[in-house]
Simulated scan of single mutants.
Amino acid sequence: MTHQNSRNSKSSFPFIHQSRRHPTRRRFLQFSAAALSTVALSNCARNTLNQQSTASSPVAQTDSKTLYLYTWADYSSNELYQRFRDKTGIQVIADVYDSNEMMLNKLQAGGGDQYSLIFPSDYMVRQMIDSQLLLPLDQSKLKGFDNVMDRWKSPTYDPNSAHSIAFNWGTTGLLYNTKVVSTEPTDWDFLWQNRDALSGKITLLDDVRETMGAVLKSLGYSYNATEPAQIEAAYQKLLELKPHLASFKTIGWEDQLISGDLAICMAYSNLGSLLPIENPHLKYVIPQSGTSIWTDTMAIPAKAPNVEAAYAWINFVLEPENAAYAATQLKLGTPNKAAFELLSAEVKSNSSLYPSAEVVKAGEGIQPVGDAINLYEKYWTEVKSA
């Protein structure tokens, strides 16, 4: 399911193409049946109205008043796009993806000249820089970069923000049903310590780097370990838990957790913040030993057709009022310190969205691990088939 609002006519709102790939963390911001049916109906109407307004259209190469985005499904907000159009006169047309790999594959297959702005995650930024797929940013064209929090001004994945600007961020943790689990989990090891009592009621993310990273962290290693012995130790520990898992699943477990058929699920802070609003018996916790601190960014493809419109969007988002609006609309953490001050006290105190400095310090961003990825994938395949 996607975080998308009801769409109106072609003349007023952009065409947004809904991808059909398997959902990831970005596709569960709206999870009710009513919301899903509304999205489905609006998507059908939208596609019928504007069959030609795709990012592969030649107009993407020449139209200076249109910004073609390739973005996460739940970052597509007509309200936000209309706000940008009202300010700049530039219309937004968006295609959406649900994994970094899907986005990368499309750009590598020749789609880099179709889009003027993309939203890669931290580790993918590094990979795309190394592959020369991103345009170096002209710092003189950026307005409001001083508003970015220090952590994201020169991140390890992109020193000095030379190719990307942080857009949103979040964490990975455990979401549990307090009616089923009476003792609050404090760390990843809770799953192993209580595996018999929770057997068949646990889910982990269907994501090799996140799940293997969490196991590595529980062993005292880095999320980004490259030592073969450490990766193997994580594999062996994950094998111990495997018989007690209901599944590896990133999305689709919500109703079971709410009802109590599941007890505890590895989840991203998006859902960890949203689900408890209507289901107060659910609670999201960030493991004390540390977790992944993920960041999604704004970047310009090396062959972008409308670079100036891309800078207009980046500068629009860097404005505190717009950054705060985007964070409120998309229910994600903002890396803009001036925007953070504009948020309501309730939002700022939401530890699921804005954890303490100590929690953030203990976390890690997922980084490329070089050739070690082959070992991760080998063990991941083995543990899932065990």
Score class of each variant (00 low, 15 high):
Tyr75Lys: 06
Phe84Lys: 13
Ala109Lys: 02
Gln91Asn: 10
Gln52Gly: 08
Ala33Glu: 12
Ser57Pro: 09
Ser56Gln: 08
Asn47Gly: 04
Leu107Phe: 09
Ser42Tyr: 00
Leu67His: 04
Ser37Met: 12
Asp74Thr: 15
Pro120Trp: 02
Glu101Phe: 10
Leu36Cys: 05
Pro58Gly: 03
Ala55Val: 05
His17Gly: 05
Arg20Met: 06
Ala55Gln: 00
Asn105Ile: 03
Gln108His: 08
Ala60Pro: 02
Asn50Leu: 04
Arg20Leu: 13
Met103Trp: 01
Pro23Gly: 15
Ser56Met: 05
Gly112Arg: 07
Ile16Asn: 01
Glu79Ala: 13
Ala33Ser: 14
Asp113Gly: 02
Asp74Phe: 01
Leu29Ser: 15
Ala73Asn: 10
Ser99Asn: 00
Thr24Met: 13
Leu117Gln: 06
Gln127Asp: 06
Leu69Asp: 09
Leu49His: 05
Gly111Asn: 07
Arg21His: 14
Ala45Ser: 11
Ala73Thr: 13
Ala34Phe: 13
Leu49Pro: 04
Ala60Tyr: 02
Ala60Asn: 14
Gln91Tyr: 07
Met128Ser: 06
Gln30Pro: 00
Gly89Trp: 03
Met103Lys: 02
Asp113Leu: 04
Asp95Ala: 12
Ser121Ile: 11
Arg46Asp: 04
Gly110Cys: 06
Gly111Met: 05
Asp98Ala: 04
Ser53Gln: 05
Phe13Asn: 15
Ile93Thr: 05
Ala40Glu: 12
Arg46Ala: 11
Leu36Met: 03
Leu107His: 01
Asn105Glu: 12
Met128Phe: 06
Asn50Cys: 04
Asn78Glu: 02
Leu67Gln: 03
Thr66Pro: 03
Ala34Ser: 12
Tyr70His: 08
Leu67Cys: 08
Leu36His: 09
Val39Pro: 04
Tyr97Val: 10
Lys106Pro: 02
Phe119Gly: 01
Arg46Tyr: 04
Ser42Asn: 04
Phe13Arg: 14
Val59Thr: 13
Tyr70Arg: 01
Arg25Ala: 12
Ala73Met: 07
Gln30Glu: 10
Tyr123Glu: 02
Ser57Thr: 15
Cys44Thr: 10
Leu69Glu: 14
Ser57Tyr: 12
Asp74Pro: 02
Ala33Asn: 08
Val96Gly: 09
His22Gly: 07
Asp98Tyr: 05
Ser64Lys: 14
Tyr123Gly: 01
Leu49Phe: 11
Asn100Met: 11
Glu101Leu: 09
Thr88Pro: 06
Leu117Ser: 05
Tyr81Ser: 02
Lys65His: 08
Ile93Trp: 06
Arg46Phe: 07
Ala73Trp: 00
Ala40Lys: 13
Ser64Arg: 04
Leu29Met: 15
Met128Asn: 01
Val96His: 01
Pro120Gln: 03
Tyr123Ser: 12
Asp74Gly: 11
Leu49Met: 11
Tyr81Phe: 15
Gly111Ser: 07
Val96Leu: 11
Pro120Glu: 01
Ala109Phe: 03
Ser19Gly: 11
Gln18Asp: 02
Val92Ala: 12
Arg25Tyr: 07
Arg46Trp: 02
Leu49Ala: 15
